[in-house]
Design a protein around this nucleic acid. Structure first.
Lengths: 300, 300
DNA sequence: CTTATGTATTAAATAATAAAAAGCCAAATA
DNA sequence: TATTTGGCTTTTTATTATTTAATACATAAG
C-alpha cells in the first residue's frame, strides 16, 4: 500500500546490464556516478547495490565495489507489466466522449473511467482537473466529476474562440518572411487540394485528413504555448465531429476545398485582410456544420 | 484514515435546527425529504437519525419518527475548524509567486505548499494540474512539480495572447446594441478616468484599480467560457506585476489613462477599426512595461 | 580541500480504508 | 395497482497511512 518500486526495479536491471560490460573483479563506479548514469537518486542506487551484494553479484565494502561474477538473465527483476500510457489519455478520453456520444451533464465516475482507460485513479483526477480549465468537466457539489460539454453553447463558444485564434494565425502567416517554411507547405497543400478536387467524387472522405493538415500548417506559424494548447483540443473536437456527421459529406468537402484554396490564394498574394476574411467565412461554415451535427445527435 | 465526516456533522446540526422548528411529538418528514432538504444522501440522513435516536431527541420506528424533546445547544456536534478556503487558492498562489519573485524553474514541493497555504495536498495536486494547462507549472521527470513561468518568453506569449483576445473583445463592444449595459459602464469609466487625470499628481497609484475595471468591462461583453477562464489569469498576472514595478509609475499611468480614453472615444463613435488600433497600441505599451518589470527583477 | 559514503530527514506516490452516495427490493401506503 | 418509503447492499469517493524515493547533512577517505 504505497508507491510502486518501479524505479528500483528499472534501475536494478540497468545496473545489471552495466555490470555485464565490466571485467570480473572490475571496479564499480561511485554511487553518485551510478545515480547519474541511471537517472535516479542515490537512495535507489544503494538499494540496488545492497541487493547485488546479497545476490553475490558484487562485493561491497565501504567505497570498494567489485564484480564477483557475471550477471545471469535470471538475476533480473521482473517488471510489472506496463499499463497503457497515461500520455494519450486526452486523445482516448475525448475520443470516448465523442464516439459514444456521451451527453452533456453526465456524471463521470473516476472508478469507472479508471477501469475503462486502465489508468490509476489519481492520474485521472489530475487529468480531469486539467480539463476543468477548458470548461469540459467540473466538480459536482456532492463529490465526483461531471461532463459538461458538448452542448450547443459549448460548440458555439468553441467555434468563436477558434475563429479568434485562427484569424490571428492567418494574419501572421501573411506577414511571414519569404523563406519561412510555411510557404512551401502551403504550395504543397494547394497541389493536394487541387488533386483531391479533381477526384472528389470518389475520394471525398480523404478530405478530413487534408483539413487537419491545412489548419495545422496555418497555426504552426503562431509560436504561443497558450494557443498551441487550445489548438490540440479544438482540432480534436472538430475532427471527430466531422468524422461522425456523414450528411452531405461530399458537397461539404467540395465547398471546403474551395474555401481553403481562397485562403491560400490570399495568403500567397500577401493580402492579410483578404485572407482573414476568407478564413472567417470558412470558419463560419465549420461552425454551422458543427452545430448541425449536434442537432442530428439530438434527434437521433 | 479515510474521508472526513464533515458532511455528517453539518447535516446533523442542520437537522437539529430543523427539529427546533417542530412541535414536541411532531412528525418528522421522510428520509428522502430530509436528504433533499439538507442536500445530502439518504445514507447520511440515516446516520443522523440513528444518532438523534441514540441521544433520545427523537423516536424512530420504521417510518414513524417523532420529536421527543427540544434539542439543546450541547447536542450539536463540533465542526472541525474550517481551514482556509481552497477557493481563492489561485489568487494566493499567484500572489505568492509574484510577490516573492519566485524564479522560473523552481521545484515546487507539494508538502511545503500545503503548509504555506493551509490546503490539503490532494487539493494542491488538482490545482497544479489545472495550472499546467496554462503552462505555468509542469511535472518533473523524477516526480513533483516545477514552476515554469515567468520567463521573458512566457511574458511575451502571454501578452500576445492577451492582445488577440482583447482586440476581439473591443471589436465586439463596438458592435454591441445601444441598450447594452457596457455603454453606461464606459460612460462612467470615462468620467473616472478624467477625474483621475486631473488629480494624477497625488492619486496616480489609484490607476491600478481603474485599469483592472476598464479591461474587465471590455472583456465582459465577450460571453465565452474559454476566454473568460484565461482573462482571470491574465489580469491577475498583469495586475500583480504593475503593482510591483514602481519605476516611472506616475508617467506610465498618465499615459495609460490617455490610451484608455482614446479607446473609449473610438468605441463611443462605434468605430471598431479605430478602437482595435487604439487597443493594440495600448496593449503594446503594456507588453513593454511587463517586460521591463521582468528585466528589473533580473537585475535586482 | 574536494569528493564519496553513511545516516537522517523530508517528500512523493499510491494502496487501503472509512464515509458517503447510489442502487435494489420488498413492504407499506394511497 | 402505482408509487413512495425504509432496510439493506454495492459502489464510489475523499483522505490517510505507508512505502519508496529524494534530499540534506555530517563524516571519512583520498
Amino acid at each position: 500500500m504505497a508507491r510502486s518500486d518501479t524505479r528500483f526495479r528499472e534501475a536494478y536491471n540497468q545496473l545489471l546490464m552495466h555490470c555485464e560490460t565490466l571485467p570480473l573483479e572490475g571496479e564499480i563506479p561511485s554511487e553518485m556516478q551510478l545515480a547519474e548514469m541511471v537517472g535516479v537518486s542515490r537512495t535507489v542506487v544503494r538499494r540496488c547495490l545492497s541487493r547485488l551484494k546479497e545476490q553475490n553479484v558484487i562485493s561491497w565494502e565501504g567505497r570498494e565495489k567489485r564484480l564477483l561474477r557475471r550477471p545471469r538473465v535470471e538475476d533480473r527483476i521482473a517488471m510489472p507489466e506496463a499499463s497503457q500510457p497515461t500520455r494519450d489519455l486526452e486523445q482516448r478520453f475525448l475520443g470516448w466522449v465523442l464516439k459514444f456520444d456521451v451527453p452533456a451533464n453526465t456524471p463521470l465516475s473516476v472508478a469507472e473511467l479508471s477501469r475503462t482507460f486502465d489508468v490509476p485513479q489519481y492520474d485521472l483526477k489530475e487529468f480531469l482537473a486539467g480539463l476543468s480549465r477548458f470548461g469540459l468537466v467540473s466538480r459536482r457539489p456532492k463529490g465526483g466529476w461531471m461532463l459538461l460539454g458538448f452542448t450547443k453553447e459549448y460548440a458555439i463558444e468553441l467555434s468563436d474562440f477558434r475563429s479568434v485564434l485562427e484569424s490571428n494565425a492567418v494574419m501572421q502567416v501573411a506577414e511571414a518572411p519569404v523563406d519561412h517554411p510555411v510557404w512551401d507547405a502551403l504550395a504543397e497543400l494547394r497541389q493536394d487540394h487541387l488533386a483531391l478536387k479533381a477526384a472528389i467524387d470518389t475520394d471525398f472522405h480523404e478530405f478530413s485528413k487534408l483539413d487537419e493538415r491545412f489548419h495545422q500548417t496555418i497555426n504552426s506559424v503562431v509560436k504561443n504555448r497558450f494557443i498551441a494548447e487550445f489548438q490540440k483540443v479544438i482540432s480534436l473536437i472538430f475532427h471527430y465531429h466531422y468524422m461522425w456527421d456523414k450528411t452531405e459529406e461530399k458537397g461539404r468537402n467540395a465547398a471546403a476545398i474551395d474555401e481553403h484554396l481562397k485562403i491560400i490564394d490570399a495568403l500567397e498574394a500577401r493580402d492579410g485582410e483578404a485572407a482573414r476574411d476568407a478564413a472567417q467565412r470558412h470558419l463560419r461554415t465549420s461552425k454551422t456544420t458543427l452545430l448541425s451535427s449536434l442537432r442530428h445527435h439530438d434527434l437521433g
